[in-house]
Simulated scan of single mutants.
Amino acid sequence: MATALFPAVRKSLGKVRWYLEGMMGADAYHRYVDHHAATHPGCEPMTERQFWRDKYDWEERNPQGRCC
């Protein structure tokens, strides 16, 4: 009985993690890569490090209302 509980708990925790990452923007790079592959096939996307640097630079140049 306990072994049947673990997959359900793991699945639930995975959904919570997915939700929190989406809410906090932590999934932005993965969304970028998916979008880039769909709109620019054959072109190499930015690395994750380049992506985050570009994203934060853009946010500094274009301040918008955000909580933090």
Rank of each mutant, 00 (worst) to 15 (best):
residue 29 Y to K: 00
residue 14 G to E: 09
residue 8 A to V: 05
residue 52 W to M: 04
residue 66 R to P: 01
residue 23 M to E: 10
residue 5 L to W: 00
residue 36 H to L: 06
residue 5 L to A: 03
residue 44 E to F: 01
residue 18 W to F: 12
residue 20 L to K: 14
residue 13 L to K: 11
residue 24 M to K: 15
residue 4 A to L: 07
residue 33 V to M: 07
residue 57 D to Q: 08
residue 10 R to Q: 10
residue 40 H to F: 05
residue 19 Y to H: 10
residue 30 H to I: 01
residue 67 C to H: 15
residue 36 H to V: 07
residue 52 W to P: 04
residue 11 K to I: 04
residue 18 W to D: 15
residue 56 Y to D: 10
residue 12 S to E: 11
residue 6 F to K: 00
residue 55 K to F: 03
residue 65 G to T: 04
residue 54 D to L: 02
residue 50 Q to C: 10
residue 7 P to E: 01
residue 13 L to Y: 10
residue 48 E to L: 15
residue 8 A to G: 04
residue 15 K to E: 11
residue 52 W to L: 05
residue 6 F to A: 01
residue 58 W to N: 07
residue 9 V to R: 09
residue 58 W to I: 01
residue 35 H to F: 04
residue 25 G to T: 08
residue 55 K to I: 00
residue 52 W to K: 05
residue 52 W to F: 14
residue 5 L to S: 00
residue 10 R to A: 08
residue 56 Y to F: 13
residue 64 Q to G: 07
residue 40 H to T: 08
residue 54 D to N: 06
residue 4 A to T: 05
residue 8 A to I: 06
residue 31 R to H: 08
residue 4 A to I: 05
residue 16 V to F: 04
residue 20 L to P: 09
residue 22 G to E: 03
residue 39 T to L: 10
residue 57 D to V: 06
residue 66 R to W: 04
residue 8 A to Y: 07
residue 68 C to D: 11
residue 7 P to D: 01
residue 46 M to E: 14
residue 16 V to P: 02
residue 27 D to A: 12
residue 41 P to E: 06
residue 17 R to E: 12
residue 29 Y to Q: 00
residue 20 L to T: 08
residue 38 A to V: 03
residue 45 P to A: 06
residue 35 H to W: 08
residue 15 K to R: 09
residue 44 E to S: 15
residue 34 D to E: 09
residue 56 Y to P: 02
residue 59 E to V: 02
residue 23 M to S: 14
residue 40 H to S: 11
residue 29 Y to A: 01
residue 67 C to N: 13
residue 35 H to T: 05
residue 14 G to D: 13
residue 28 A to K: 10
residue 3 T to H: 04
residue 6 F to Q: 02
residue 12 S to M: 09
residue 32 Y to R: 00
residue 35 H to G: 03
residue 42 G to P: 13
residue 60 E to Y: 01
residue 62 N to W: 08
residue 64 Q to Y: 02
residue 40 H to Y: 04
residue 43 C to E: 15
residue 21 E to M: 09
residue 16 V to D: 03
residue 63 P to F: 03
residue 59 E to I: 05
residue 60 E to K: 03
residue 2 A to M: 07
residue 29 Y to R: 00
residue 67 C to M: 11
residue 64 Q to D: 03
residue 14 G to H: 09
residue 15 K to N: 11
residue 36 H to K: 09
residue 60 E to W: 02
residue 33 V to Q: 07
residue 46 M to Q: 15
residue 46 M to Y: 14
residue 23 M to P: 10
residue 36 H to W: 09
residue 64 Q to M: 05
residue 34 D to K: 11
residue 20 L to G: 10
residue 49 R to V: 14
residue 40 H to G: 02
residue 35 H to R: 04
residue 27 D to Y: 13
residue 5 L to R: 00
residue 11 K to G: 10
residue 18 W to N: 15
residue 15 K to W: 07
residue 19 Y to S: 07
residue 4 A to R: 07
residue 62 N to E: 10
residue 57 D to P: 02
residue 63 P to Q: 05
residue 43 C to K: 15
residue 53 R to C: 06
residue 30 H to P: 00
residue 16 V to I: 04
residue 2 A to K: 03
residue 31 R to Y: 08
residue 56 Y to T: 06
residue 40 H to W: 02
residue 58 W to L: 05
residue 57 D to G: 05
residue 14 G to N: 13
residue 3 T to Y: 02
residue 50 Q to V: 12
residue 67 C to D: 15
residue 65 G to Q: 08
residue 9 V to N: 05
residue 64 Q to I: 02
